[in-house]
Amino acid sequence: MLELLIAGGWVMWPILLCSAIALAIIIERFWTLRRSKVLPLDLGDEVRQWAASGRLDPKHIETLRGNSPLGAILAAALEVRHRPREQIKERVEDTGRHQLHRMERFLNTLGTIAGITPLLGLLGTVFGMIRMFLGILTHGVGDASLLAGGIGEALISTAAGLCVAIPALMFYRYFRGRIGEYIVEMEQQVIALLDTLESVPQPGSVSPTPRPRRPAAAAPGVAG
């Protein structure tokens, strides 16, 4: 392995650094974006039961906010549950943008690595070809070792760049897709919670009392 790094030239070192960063990001995102951590099982049903029974106090909501990204979004809806539905949706959207930013953490870096490592490999290829032609210019075509060294540097750096870029791009797309699925499920949970809140009578609301019907007046000329 060390011989390949040396043979690939100095471009191999930034490629190796990019591979280490990409591996760390992939492991961290796999751990952070677990379904049990983002969308805990039965959390939405439990919160809807709280809302339906009226067991909602600040301590419950604060605990829910720190539970998970889904919990933070549901807590944002419960905090303003007495407001109109449109205002609740605005608060949920604001909180959702913050949670989305957290879930997409480091993904831009992973995508950048997927984009620059092939370019680094191509740069190594260019330097390898330059080295080869300079060797031909200085020593002629009779020295095969110089030609082999330049071609080897070009091929090794290109292969290394692609070996880093392909998995990085694959996991970048995978994590973006997973986050998209989570967002859709969160929206479904929020809609279900809003429907539950609308079905629960709000404190202070008085149900309208039906007015007694007045007896119809007798038509004139009709005997009682």
Rank of each mutant, 00 (worst) to 15 (best):
T138P: 02
L78H: 08
M103T: 07
D143C: 06
P14Q: 11
M129C: 05
F175G: 09
P58N: 08
E104K: 11
A77Q: 02
N108Q: 08
L193G: 05
A216M: 13
I156P: 01
R34D: 09
R178Q: 15
P212L: 08
T117Y: 00
D94P: 00
P201C: 12
I27M: 09
G66V: 09
G142Y: 01
L162P: 10
G128D: 04
Y172T: 06
L41V: 10
I151Q: 10
A51W: 00
A217L: 14
V126K: 04
R34T: 12
W50T: 09
I6Q: 07
T196E: 06
G9L: 09
I73L: 15
L169C: 05
V190N: 01
W10A: 11
V190Q: 05
W13N: 10
L16N: 04
W13I: 15
L169G: 12
T112D: 02
S36W: 01
S199W: 00
Q188G: 12
S19A: 14
A216K: 09
L197N: 06
G221C: 08
N108T: 14
T95Y: 00
S207P: 01
G177T: 06
V200K: 03
P84Y: 00
Q87F: 01
H101E: 06
P220W: 04
Y182L: 07
V222R: 08
G124H: 02
Q87Y: 01
L134D: 15
L155G: 10
D195Q: 09
H101W: 04
K89L: 09
I116R: 04
S68Y: 04
A20Y: 01
L33G: 10
